[in-house]
């Protein structure tokens, strides 16, 4: 804390609380309320109902949960594997190519996601690479958008890893593959988990590119929510949003627990 006086600290805390309340809590609270209410005409909603959730779980929304989870897992796993690979490969290089290749990974995240979707749509509309109207193009779109973050996370982890561990390992007779599996990857495991979690969360919330490319049978949650609210069905949209939030959070919390258990058995 940079502020030491009591009154000063109180001021800082209240400011932080208000900011947090307005920016983060209020919108979420509104969505929660909406998802449980029958009507919302005045300042506060009226009537309590679980109907929106029931609808969501029965209808097309269940397919949306499934589509989002599968897309998120596939794209994040791909991003994790290729991100780790690229980070490992580029780590050894110190020349200008490393910088250029590293930059390449970040280009998609600097371009608006709608444009990425449009680009993919155009690129994969011709014969040898005809992906339009398939679920694969959704995976590709998500992968393109999240791989930079996976790569960045893993690169950061690798750059903090002192070379001593790997050097001692190879001196003791570990071949490169053995060293990678038993030393390098376990030591950067927290970064791998973080990379996966971040990728997954990003994928779960992705809308811009997905809207451009999704085929009829593969509606992800954000697309479904967008569709519902666009038609004016705010309450169902809110219920689906809550499901999206809960599913994503559950997975992230589970991930956060997992590595701590394996790294510290005591």
């Amino acid at each position: 804390m940079l502020v030491w006086s009591l009154s000063g600290r109180a001021l800082v805390w209240s400011f932080a609380a208000i900011l947090l309340g307005i920016v983060f809590v209020a919108p979420l609270a509104v969505i929660i309320c909406a998802s449980f209410s029958e009507q919302w005409n005045g300042i506060l909603p009226t009537g309590f109902t679980l109907e929106h959730y029931r609808d969501a779980m029965n209808g097309a929304a269940r397919d949306a949960v499934y589509a989002s989870l599968v897309t998120g897992l596939v794209a994040s796993l791909l991003a994790l594997v290729t991100g780790a690979w690229a980070a490992l490969a580029l780590r050894a290089r110190v020349d200008q190519w490393a910088g250029a290749l590293g930059l390449l990974f970040f280009i998609p995240s600097a371009v608006p996601s709608v444009s990425v979707g449009l680009g993919l749509l155009v690129a994969f509309s011709q014969k040898p690479l005809l992906l339009n109207g398939t679920t694969a193009i959704v995976f590709v779109a998500h992968y393109v958008l999240i791989s930079a973050f996976a790569f960045g996370n893993i690169s950061a982890g690798l750059s903090r890893l002192a070379p001593d561990y790997e050097e001692v390992a190879s001196c003791l007779g570990a071949r490169p593959a053995y060293r990678l599996m038993h030393v390098t990857l376990p030591l950067v495991a927290p970064y791998l988990v973080a990379a996966f979690g971040l990728s997954f969360a990003l994928s779960m919330g992705e809308l811009g590119a997905t809207v451009m490319v999704y085929p009829p049978g593969w509606v992800t949650m954000p697309v479904a929510i967008f569709g519902l609210t666009d038609r004016g069905d705010i309450f169902s949209g809110a219920a689906l949003t809550m499901i999206l939030v809960v599913v994503t959070l559950a997975l992230l919390i589970g991930l956060e627990r997992a590595p701590i258990r394996s790294a510290a058995p005591r």
Partner: peptide, 30 residues
């Protein structure tokens, strides 16, 4: 890894995710 040497460095570089016995066994396992 083909030179048949072993090395001890200034900060020891023990593998933090392995127990003492696993650390000692590392070279032979490898």
């Amino acid at each position: 890894y083909e030179r048949g040497l072993a090395m001890v460095v200034q900060n020891y570089a023990l593998f933090p995710h392995m127990r003492v016995s696993e650390n000692v066994a590392f070279g032979l396992n490898a």
